[in-house]
Structures are given as C-alpha cells and as structure tokens.
C-alpha cells in the first residue's frame, strides 16, 4: 500500500487520470443513484424533447430521458470494454507464453494461427463473426476477442523468448524447478509490466471497437442503453435532433481519452527502463556508482598498457 501511495505521489499525472477513470467507473456502478429517470421508461408523447431543465440532455425518440440513458450507457460501454481487455489479455498472454516457452510445433501452430488472424482486417472479421453468431453484446465480445488476442500472444511470446535462455532460468531448471513453477515464477512476472501497459492503452480502442459493432447493429440490442447503439439510433435525426448524436459521441470521446491517457501515464510509471534506473539508484547510491565506473576505467587502462608491453 505504501508503495502504491509513493508511486502515485511521484506521478501526479497518473494519479489524476486514475481519479478520472475511477470517476467513470463510479458513474457506472452508481448509475441507479445518479440517473434522474428510469432509462427504459418510455413516455412516447415526450419524444425528441430538446435539452431542458427537466431533461438535461433531452429525450430520445421514445421519450426516454437521454441523460439517464447516457449514465446507464457507461455501464455497458465500460464493463464490456474491461471484460474484453481482460479476456484478450489473459487468453493472448497465455498462448504467447506457452508458444514461447515450449517452442517447436506448438509455437509454429499457435503463431501461424495468429498470423492468419492478423491477415484479416480486424473490424471486418469481427463484423463477420458477430454476424454469424448473431447480434448481442456477448457475441460482440467474443468476436472482438477472436480477432484481438494475437497482439498479446505475439508480444508475450517475444518477451518470453528474450528471457527463455538466460542464466537464471537455466539455473532454475538445473535446481529442479518444474515447468509450471518456471512459468509462474519467472516467465509471467517478467512479461507482465509490458503486457499491462498494452492492456491499459488498449481499453480506449477496444471501447471504440465495441461501439462500432453496436453502431452497426452487431453489438448491444434495443432497448439497452449503449453509446454506439444510441449513436446509431440517433443518426436519422442528425439535422432535427442533433443532441441524440452529440451526447453519446461526447461520452465515448471523453471515456476513450481518459483511458488512453491513463494507459500512457501507466506506461511512464511501469516503464522497465525507468524502473531499472530507479533500482540502480536505490542499490548503489551516487558515490558507489562513481567508484565502480572508475575501477572499470582502471581495468581498461591496464589492459591497454599490458598490450603495449
């Protein structure tokens, strides 16, 4: 806990974005308390009312309060994005680690499979898969998972390959560590920081993908309040009721920006290079490090002088 507070103190930007993201998640969790009306309750006679004191964001075609639908939409959009990222993160990383660790035919099969998936334009493939499975949020999540796991698989495989033949792994093998232990204790933790950064920066783009599928009718189904679907519902009223497009668009924009910034700042915090520098500082202190540098120079000099002799 102390560590976390320290990190947050050192990274005020990251702290700020964390607060914003937390705020968004809170809106999703507390939607029933925050929403002024029931997002499903349709008062047909109140259709397409302009934003007013009574309905801050106006009403939609079925006379439902738009603000309440936007607030409830946070639930659908944020939760599906988080579930999706968790899914592709865990499935992709696991496949990548296995392929990298075992190598051989398993590596070939899994990576060629990944190559095949990458060969297709991802959103179009997702549309095709969602189309075959039938339109629903769950199927949209499955479709995007199928096209997106490759990124994590390739990344974690390359990270594993980098450390697969290091001395400490050889030592661990020599001292009798079993495969499960090796993966759990050495490989996974070493790949995690990079994968987590990728996952955090992915939340925004995944949310956009989900919204795209819903916009096209392959994701959320009526009457569910989901921003992508709400945009799609409102597009007919571009000229006569622009608020139907402005508010869900704005909501998607804000949430995607917040999660992207959060991902970027998380990268700054977890950057392995930066971590190395910090740990060096902690281990040696400045004086000690200077001493080491000097000794290294002496050694070099000696070598050269030896050559002369």
């Amino acid at each position: 806990m102390k560590n976390v507070i320290a990190i947050l103190k050192q990274n005020p930007k990251f702290f700020g974005y964390c607060l914003l993201a937390l705020g968004i998640i809170l809106i999703a969790v507390m939607a029933p308390l925050l929403a002024p009306y029931d997002p499903y309750s349709a008062e047909l006679v109140n259709a397409l009312q302009k934003p007013s004191a009574e309905h801050l964001m106006g009403t939609d075609l079925l006379g439902r309060d738009y603000l309440s639908r936007i607030i409830y939409g946070t639930r659908a959009s944020v939760s599906s994005a988080l579930i999706l990222v968790a899914l592709i993160f865990s499935i992709g990383s696991l496949i990548g680690i296995l392929a990298g660790y075992f190598g051989g035919w398993l590596d070939t099969v899994l990576m060629r499979l990944a190559d095949i998936m990458i060969a297709f334009p991802d959103l179009i493939l997702a549309i095709a898969i969602a189309g075959i499975l039938g339109p629903s949020t769950t199927n949209a999540i499955i479709a995007i998972t199928i096209v997106s796991w490759t990124r994590y698989a390739r990344l974690s495989r390359s990270l594993v390959l980098k450390i697969r033949h290091t001395d400490y792994l050889a030592a661990a093998t020599l001292t009798g560590s079993k495969t499960g232990h090796l993966i759990g204790r050495y490989l996974a933790p070493n790949t995690l920081p990079t994968l987590i950064i990728t996952a955090a920066t992915d939340i925004g783009s995944v949310m956009l993908q989900m919204a795209s599928l819903s916009f096209l009718g392959f994701g959320a189904q009526p009457p569910m309040p989901e921003w992508g679907y709400m945009l799609s519902e409102g597009r007919t009223y571009l000229q006569s009721a622009p608020w139907l497009l402005v508010f869900p668009g704005l909501a998607i924009f804000v949430v995607v920006v917040v999660f992207n910034l959060l991902g970027d700042s998380l990268r700054d915090v977890l950057d392995p290079q930066r971590e190395l520098n910090i740990s060096k500082k902690r281990l040696f202190g400045k004086a000690k490090r200077n001493e080491i540098e000097e000794n290294r120079c002496i050694v070099c000099d000696r070598d050269f002088s030896g050559g002369d002799a």
Partner: peptide
C-alpha cells in the same frame, strides 16, 4: 418498423410482457 417495434416493446414491458426486438 424497427422504431415502432421498439416503442411497442417499451409499452409491453409496462404490463409485464417482454418483447425482444431484433432486426
């Protein structure tokens, strides 16, 4: 027709009948 069906589904929900509209 999709809009009409959704409006009808919203009204049916009020008397406890669920209508799942799909296009």
């Amino acid at each position: 027709m999709n809009v009409i069906a959704e409006a009808q589904a919203a009204q049916l929900a009020e008397i406890g009948i669920q209508a799942n509209v799909s296009i």
